[in-house]
Computed example of a mutant assay.
Amino acid sequence: MKPLLAILDDYQGVALSCADFDSLRAHFDIRVYQRAFADEQETVAELGDAEVLVAMRERTRLSRSVLECLPKLRYIVTTGMRNAAIDMAAAAERGILVSGTGMSKHAAGELTWALVMAAARHIPAEVAGMRSGGWQSTVGTELNGRTLGIVGLGHIGTQVARYGQAFGMTVQAWSPNLDADRAAALNVAAVPKDKLFAESDVVSLHLVLSERTRGVVGAHDLALLGPTGLLVNTSRGPLVEEAALVEALSNGVLGAAALDVYDIEPLPASHPLRTLPNVVATPHIGFVTDKSYGVAYPQAVEDIQAWLAGAPIRLL
């Protein structure tokens, strides 16, 4: 019996068609999972025989307690070059190597702008109205002449800033370590956090989640953004205090939110962010594109082939 290679969370069922996993069948039995595991117990029960895992971003949490219950596991490939869902210290202690892959550099920024436009022009509501036989029912918000606030002016934040400028928006930015000179070179004003939330019409979050940035947006910030403001989050759910966000959206303190990420993913079916009328919600699809998968899965195969040859690549 050959060792098991498990491909995790292939929600769309496309992994095997995106890369030559067949080239690995001489070495492994390959098992593909198309759904998220319910909890750590199910994760361990399903993956107990796995020698190699291919993880799609952070969909499955590979915590210390999980890794300690996978005695045969020797190698993990994660799509992308960062995965906060893998306990890297625990993996190292158990001699489990972890490699990454490339991903598209444009997918998340494009999705961010799609959400901005969808929320500003009430596209989900108008599409739903058309499908039910109705006609126009909302008044949209033009972006030209408005102010866009960027929280985190890294690669994706810079991309979104340029989209805003292309739409005629004034762009300002804040982050804990913002380089004011770099912001100025991008024609972006570096401002204090309170000023950004108070004076922006749209605020888009683009920070890496860490202990320093967890809950960086709270009730005070949402109140400053106000009843006509739009908060966009395509980075990580826990950047925002979720309970404060739900309350602000429910009582009119915040005008609207456009979200692709959540504290718990998949988002529970009964969660209010699924049904609040002033929320445009997508199921963490910022990186889910043909180009992203077309890079990530083939490089995952390359990683495994290199590991089998005793010369692992793209180690994290």
Rank of each mutant, 00 (worst) to 15 (best):
E302F: 08
Q305L: 14
H271A: 03
D303T: 11
R314N: 14
V295C: 10
P312G: 06
L273F: 08
T289V: 10
I313N: 12
G294Q: 12
P298T: 01
Q299T: 00
R274I: 01
I285D: 00
F287D: 08
Q305W: 04
A281P: 06
L276P: 13
F287G: 05
V261G: 01
N278S: 08
V288L: 05
V301I: 03
L315Q: 14
I264N: 14
D263T: 00
N278P: 09
V288E: 10
A281G: 07
V301T: 02
V279F: 14
A311N: 13
I313F: 10
Y293M: 15
A269I: 11
H284T: 01
A281M: 08
D263Y: 06
A309T: 02
A309I: 03
P283M: 00
A309N: 10
S270E: 15
F287H: 03
Q299S: 03
P312D: 06
P268D: 03
A281E: 08
V279S: 13
E302Q: 15
P283S: 00
P277G: 13
V279I: 01
P277A: 14
G294N: 12
G286K: 01
Y262K: 05
P277S: 15
D290N: 14
F287T: 02
L267I: 04
Q299V: 01
A269N: 04
D303P: 04
I304S: 12
P283W: 00
L273E: 04
V295P: 09
K291S: 15
A269S: 03
S270R: 15
I304V: 13
P277I: 07
E265Y: 11
R314K: 07
T289D: 11
I285E: 01
P277C: 12
P268H: 07
L308Y: 11
P272I: 02
P298I: 02
P266L: 05
W307L: 04
I304Q: 09
V295Y: 11
V280G: 15
P268V: 09
Y293S: 12
P272C: 08
D303F: 02
A281H: 06
L315F: 05
V279A: 11
Q305M: 11
Y297A: 12
H284P: 04
I304P: 11
N278C: 07
G294K: 10
L273N: 04
L308R: 12
A306R: 14
G286F: 02
G286D: 06
A281Q: 05
P283E: 00
V261Q: 07
P283F: 01
G310N: 09
A300K: 00
S292L: 10
Q305A: 13
Y297I: 08
Y297T: 06
Y293N: 15
L273Q: 04
T282Q: 08
G294Y: 13
K291E: 15
P312T: 00
